[in-house]
Design a protein around this nucleic acid. Sequence first.
DNA 1: CTGAAAAACTTGACACCGTATATCTTTCTT
DNA 2: AAGAAAGATATACGGTGTCAAGTTTTTCAG
Lengths: 209, 209
Amino acid sequence: MTRAKLTAGELETFRSNAIAWVIQMISKRGPQSFSMRALANELGVSPMTPYRYFTDKDHLLATVREEAFRHFADSQRAVYQATDPAHRLSALGRSYLQFAIDEPGLYRVMFDLEQAPSDTHPGLAKEQNRSFSYLLASMEEAIRANGRTGNALLLAHLAWATVHGIISLHFAGKLTIGCALEDLLQSSYFRIHEEFRSPVVGNHAHSTK
Amino acid sequence: MTRAKLTAGELETFRSNAIAWVIQMISKRGPQSFSMRALANELGVSPMTPYRYFTDKDHLLATVREEAFRHFADSQRAVYQATDPAHRLSALGRSYLQFAIDEPGLYRVMFDLEQAPSDTHPGLAKEQNRSFSYLLASMEEAIRANGRTGNALLLAHLAWATVHGIISLHFAGKLTIGCALEDLLQSSYFRIHEEFRSPVVGNHAHSTK
DNA sequence: CTGAAAAACTTGACACCGTATATCTTTCTT
DNA sequence: AAGAAAGATATACGGTGTCAAGTTTTTCAG
C-alpha cells in the first residue's frame, strides 16, 4: 500500500533481512522458534513471499547455517591472523569455545545432528571447510615447526572432535561451565599441541596404510 | 469394537508399545518422522489417547530417550562386565562407537543438541548417569591400576567428549567411515589409556587450582 | 446384581504449520 | 503502448500439537 518501491539493491536486501531476523530469532529462542509465516509477518509481507527467495524452509535454514559458518570462519581467520604460529592452536581452541558460549543458538543450528545432508548446498559446505581450514593449517604448521611428521588432517579432526564433544557435554548440562571447561581444554586440546614437543605421539596411525 | 479387554498388565503395555513404536520409527526414519496422531493411529486408538500416558510430545520423547539410554547403558555394562580391567577403556570406546553406527537414529535423539533440559525427567538423568558410570569406573580403575593420580571424572568426560565429537563429525559427513574413524580412535581415545603407562600426562590440570 | 465413582477413550474444535496453485500487480523491455 | 517477466498476494489443503468437553467402559462398594 504505502509501500516504497524496492530498488535492485533492496531486493537482495530482502534475503539478508530474512536471514538476519532468523539468525536473531534462533540466537534468542532457539532453532525451533521461527516459522515461515512468522518470518513473512515480520517482514510485513504475505505468507508465501519468502518462498520467492528460499525454495524451502530447509533451504532457508541451510542458508542461515551458511551465514553462521561464515561468521564463525571469519572469527577463526581473525584469530589465525592475529596470533603467532606458536600459539595458534590454543588461540583457535579458545576462540571456538568462546563462540559456542556466546552464541549457543547459532552453535546449535550449525552442529545440530538433525540436519539435511549439506551436499545440496555448496555454499554451506564451502564455509564449513573454510572454518576448518584455519585449524588444519595451524596443525600443519605446528607439525612442521617442530620438525615432526604426523597426519595433520587426522589430528585436526581429532582436535575439533574433542572441543566439539566438550561443548556438547556442556550444552547437555553435564559440565559445570567455566573452570571445568577450562580444565578439559587444558588437558586435551592444548595437549595436542604439546604433542609436537614430546616424543610420545602414537604410531598407530601409520599402521596399515 | 471387537477390542479385547485390557488386563492390568496390558495397561502398562500401552506405554511400552508406544515407546517401542516410536523408537522403531526414529531408528528407521529419524526423530522427526513420528507424530502424536500417527502414534495414536498406529496403536488403533483415537488421537488424544496417547495423552493419557504422556503429558506431552516432549514427555514422550524424554521417555523414549530414557529407554534409549537404558539400552545403551545396558550394553556398556555388558562390555564392562565381560572384559578384564586392562582392556575396559578401549572396549567401552569400541562399543560406544558400534552403538552409534548401528543405531544412528537412536544416537541422534539421545545426543541431539535440541532437547529440553532433562531436569524435569529424573529417570532420563538417571540412565544418562548410569551410561557414563561404566566409563568413569574404568577410568578410575585404570588410574589406580597404574599407580597414578589424576582427575578421573575429568579424564572420563574428556574421553566421552572425544568419541562423541568424532561421531558427530562422522554424522556430519566430514569423515569417511571405517578406517578414518578407527585411526581417530587409535590416536585419541585409546591414547588416554596409554597415558597411564607413560609419564607424559600434562600437569596443566593441577596448575592454578 | 446394581449403581455410582473413576478411569479410559472419543469427538470436535482451535490455532498453528509448510506449501501448492492460481491470481493479481508492478516493473522492465522492446 | 504492449507484452513479458518478476514480485507479491489470496486461497486452500492436509498436516500438526493439544485443550475442553463429552461419552463410553471398567471398577468396586453396597
